[in-house]
Nucleic acid binder design. Structure first.
Lengths: 248, 248
DNA sequence: CGCCTTTATTGACCTAAATCAACACGGCCG
DNA sequence: CGGCCGTGTTGATTTAGGTCAATAAAGGCG
């Protein structure tokens, strides 16, 4: 048996054996195309917590897939305001927004010590011209993000604090389920301030809502881990908060 | 001289002569590639106000480019809440979010009597495999949307009512400038309720803010048209409202 | 281990904007 | 021309959640 480090290396570099291949880029590629993609992928050294994977404004050289661990993307707008745009888990792709002008429009930061697959954009680009299946896969992934963004705008715009937290928890739980992980336990690896920023609330409010939901026996909070006790109640609250729009 | 109808027909179907080609799909395509794209484009009949171009859930058969007029996209989420996702002007593309699963995730509705270029997705898809330049163009356009969505989330999350309205007005103005139209006059072709829905405010608040800005000599409102009198002040207010996030 | 910094919770107060409600305007049709 | 309905404006009241402030855990480090 090869030493562990070499084993990991191998694991990291073969999409074909990756347990996340159906979530990630490789989905829907045949073995031949997949091989070609694999050759581009390079799994770098582990990225420690709070380290930037890429920074807003950087040229777009790579896109990244989360292998293990987690990350957030942050954007600082023209006026200097900071907004967390999303949290990313194994199988998620980081960097799509850089295709617009070949520069990243947000920074990506590891939430914990994590591993990422790096894919050089120029080579990917060339390969995409060669493999229609890969192009289609990329298009779909981007389109998915688009459609999730829509959902997020709705959450930010229409839901009250309880609705936002509930939606977030359900969303994280759903994404865990997709990855075959226990969906009743949701680890909140990010800080309260990150949650608050992402949901556009104050961290005091996040705290309050979490304890309120806990008192209502809907969740059980323990520092950086939430147990979902009553999923239906959570769903109910995630929509309750939303207000109906006026008729146009 | 050919009759007007025929003249328009011709105008509609040749991207090469379209004044919007640098905003729209054709940008960066050479004449040869452009010709091939042109053959796909079909400009249908005029779409009257409040008519659906496509409906949420419809299969993705075409994507659309606004030729003249304007449109909005609306999404109704699982819980029945309605959210306007965006307003679209000449040169903008509608339908990108359908690539995820070949179904539209929102409806598109004309705000006024408008013309759209229809592009059949299956043929576009085939052409994209053939023309790397077109693929790149599409990727960039989608990526642009992604990056604008980010900006919008920031607006919805962090800005107060004045900031939201100001940002919207500046945004619309900027987009007019891009199209070579007078940027100090911004027509608000949508209803107040649409504005309110889009910005996640109540229509009363929209009204109040507009009059407040008018009283401050920053804009001049007349039913469905806003004159920007003091752009700097508007810019100032568009950021003033935003609150700073807690440090992570 | 104990100190100090960072992160999280809880409380009291206040403000922006939602809500409720009345009213005004403009266009359309009889 | 006058009434009516859709649309927009303005006012009074309420409330969710932001703000300020104090306290409590938790984690890091000499």
């Amino acid at each position: 048996m090869p030493p562990l480090s070499q084993q990991m290396q191998q694991l990291s570099e073969t999409c074909s054996h990756c347990s996340l291949r159906y979530l990630c880029l490789p989905d829907h590629l045949d073995t031949h195309d997949l091989e070609k993609l694999e050759r581009l992928v390079d799994s770098g050294a582990p990225v420690v917590a709070d380290t930037e994977l890429f920074a807003q404004g950087d040229g777009l050289t790579h896109i990244y897939a989360v292998r293990d661990g987690s990350a957030k993307t942050v954007r600082i707008d023209e006026e200097g305001f900071e907004q967390i745009l999303g949290f990313y888990y194994p199988g998620d792709i980081l960097g799509f927004d850089g295709f617009a002008d070949q520069h990243h429009h947000c920074s990506a930061v590891a939430l914990e010590t994590s591993h990422f697959c790096r894919i050089p954009v120029d080579q990917l680009d060339a390969l995409v011209d060669e493999l229609p299946s890969l192009r289609q896969r990329l298009t779909r992934l981007m389109s998915q993000v688009l459609s999730e963004d829509g959902r997020m705008m709705l959450t930010l715009g229409r839901k009250d604090s309880e609705g936002r937290i509930s939606s977030l928890l359900l969303g994280l739980s759903r994404r865990r389920a997709l990855r075959g992980m226990p969906a009743t336990t949701v680890p909140l690896n990010m800080k309260r301030a990150d949650l608050a920023n992402f949901l556009s609330m104050r961290l005091e409010t996040v705290s309050r809502v979490l304890t309120r939901l806990q008192r209502a026996q809907i969740i059980k909070v323990s520092q950086h881990r939430v147990e979902i006790l009553d999923r239906d109640a959570l769903r109910e609250r995630s929509s309750r908060g939303a207000w109906v729009a006026d008729q146009s």
